[in-house]
Design a protein around this nucleic acid. Structure first.
Lengths: 146, 146
DNA sequence: TATTGTTATACTCTATAACTATA
DNA sequence: TATAGTTATAGAGTATAACAATA
């Protein structure tokens, strides 16, 4: 079948290019994280908890743009897997402070190393300085004031 | 509330940065396309049809990574809006060739101009040469052989 | 025997309303 | 009166199985 499609116009669009690259990178990330049974969102939540012991579920929601009802089941699951612990918040009786268990910390130490490998293999076509440039330009976009 | 979260680790990850930038760019794209009642996927489909008259639904699926059953309703909708036309395929009796109606072509001429404006405003923090660099690096990632 | 387009359906992700307990 | 966490539920988006018509 003649499959000569003209996609040149779409390839001029920043949204198209950024989304396709994101899907490529995240697809590989998912493959590499499957062994830990972590989806990208699980990884992000655990990583934020690991680097911010005592973080609340509301803070996770703001940082990761998750709606509170949608975080409930996720936290329940990773707590059931004994990766996190909920402790009473020191100053706010409504909230719970989240932290990694030793098992969760051990898992995340491996998972974060794997995440780096995954990034490097997804960006194997780029030099180290190109990766730095790419990161800087992407951050300029999403950190720009509206 | 003390909202001093440490997100430095996540900000080193290519997947995190690329996804956040994509959400920023596409969010703005959606806002700007709302007036045409086009979602990103509608825009992509109509744009590919416009630049590839006679394209089949199967070709659209491959190019945009859409599963055939999920394209059916989309095509039905934009045909009902009289933006596309389905004609018998010249050589394959199973397939239909898709093309824009005059109404669809007029809409897409405006929508593609708006898409460019949207990109430029989403990337307002970047110079023209930075935008070119960003595009090149993103394409290097998703066009790289597995 | 394989492919195009389609229906029906299931699963995941995301979003909204409303409740409770604490502040 | 507002906020943290939760429940229930609705709506997108994405996935698989199976079919008729054609290659």
């Amino acid at each position: 079948m003649s499959n000569e499609l003209d996609t040149r116009y779409l390839e001029t669009l920043l949204g198209y290019n950024t989304r396709r690259a994101a899907l490529t990178i995240i697809g590989r990330f998912m493959d590499n994280m499957a062994v830990y049974q972590l989806r990208p969102v699980d990884f992000s939540v655990l990583s934020l908890i690991g680097h911010n012991p005592g973080i609340t579920s509301r803070q996770l929601c703001s940082a990761l743009n998750i709606l509170p009802p949608n975080l409930v089941g996720l936290l329940k699951d990773i707590e059931k897997r004994q990766l996190i612990r909920r402790s009473p918040h020191p100053t706010d009786g409504r909230a719970m402070g989240l932290s990694l268990t030793p098992k969760g910390a051990a898992l995340m130490q491996e998972a974060e190393a794997t995440a780096l490998d995954s990034d490097l293999s997804a960006a194997a076509a780029l030099s180290p300085s190109e990766i730095k440039t790419l990161t800087r330009l992407l951050q300029k976009i999403y950190l720009a004031p509206t």
